[in-house]
């Protein structure tokens, strides 16, 4: 059965602020699922807490709205138990890089085959605009009493350093490009990270839609405005690790790190790094449990007529005196 975009939408009332960047991300996820024609029951959206946490309720697949910072833990558990599911995890930058930063790093090391999207807007919106981990040092968004005293996290750099095997950045107002990135992320065999720049129209009065477009009003008429965002794919940038060679791997990692530092006048979008040579977690499990992929936890028969069918007699024999 071919599914339409509308099949992936729920009727739940969306209470995000008018003009919120989150809308574009939800649309892009729905478009990606429709284009890939993933059966609704074979996909699950896991989300964290905050405005972005509500994402799972707007998408007509399994939806698991978890806890602040913990979305990756729930999502990985589900994927490992049922590898047939297409799993997309979503959360804010405070969720994933503040309270959940430990899980972010650990997830990278594991490389479970799922997609993690961070709605990156520099503020904690739902609690009225406090500084979040991606806000730059010294910046003072609208509702901050004083400028931010913390240095910012570099999400792309952290993902690359943590072992994520697909690292990309999208922009919530470029929905088609974002949709393509989400499809690439889902198709990637391993843990994919998408940093999505998502202006918060209510609390982030610095990184606004106009600012990204380079058309923000300025007092200095001498400054020529230009779009800050550009696409890596338009520059001939090759993010892919092609060979199992340390030299190439290091080059691709370094290149991604260097690119991740670009900010201000030129902000790259697109795929920074992609490595399918590093095995995803399910394959690693299959190395020690040979039939894991054919017979994962969710497939296993555990009883027959209400009686257990696991045979531990050999183990008990070894304890017999």
């Amino acid at each position: 059965m071919v599914l339409k975009l509308s099949d992936y939408k729920t009727e739940v009332h969306n209470d995000w602020c008018p003009g919120c960047g989150d809308f574009g991300i939800v649309n892009a996820i729905q478009m990606a699922l429709a284009e890939m024609n993933i059966p609704k029951h074979k996909a699950a959206i896991f989300s964290g807490i905050g405005c972005s946490g509500k994402t799972s309720h707007f998408i007509n697949t399994y939806g698991v709205h978890t806890l602040h910072g913990r979305v990756l833990t729930f999502a990985q558990g589900a994927k490992i138990a049922n590898p047939e599911m297409t799993i997309v995890a979503a959360g804010g930058d405070g969720d994933g890089l503040g309270i959940g930063a430990g899980h972010f790093v650990a997830a990278g090391r594991r490389n479970v085959d799922l997609t993690y999207i961070i709605f990156d807007n520099g503020v904690y919106g739902l609690t009225k605009g406090q500084a979040s981990p991606t806000l730059k040092l010294g910046e003072k968004t609208k509702s901050l009493p004083t400028p931010n005293t913390n240095y910012n996290v570099n999400p792309i750099g952290l993902a690359v350093a943590s072992g994520f095997t697909f690292v990309a950045r999208g922009y919530s107002y470029d929905v088609r490009h974002l949709k393509d990135l989400i499809i690439a992320a889902i198709n990637h065999k391993g843990l994919a990270f998408l940093d999505v720049l998502q202006p918060c129209p209510t609390y982030n009065d610095i990184n606004t839609r106009d600012w990204y477009a380079g058309t923000e009003p300025t007092d200095d008429s001498a400054i020529q405005t230009h779009a800050r965002l550009y696409k890596l794919e338009d520059t001939g940038y090759d993010p892919v690790v092609h060979y199992s060679e340390e030299a190439e791997l290091n080059e691709k990692l370094s290149q991604a790190l260097i690119k991740s530092l670009e900010w201000g006048d030129k902000i790259p979008l697109g795929i920074f790094y992609k490595n399918e040579i590093i095995t995803e977690y399910g394959r690693r499990l299959a190395d020690k449990i040979p039939n894991y992929l054919e017979n994962p936890p969710v497939m296993q028969k555990i009883s027959s007529n209400g009686k257990p069918i696991t045979d531990i007699s050999k183990l008990l024999d070894s304890l017999q005196v």
């Binding site: 896991f46 913990r70 990756l72 558990g77 589900a78 138990a81 899980h103 969710v298």
Partner: peptide, 10 residues
């Protein structure tokens, strides 16, 4: 516990 719950949901 997060992973355990995620797995239990399957």
């Amino acid at each position: 516990i997060g992973m355990t719950i995620g797995s239990a949901l399957t």
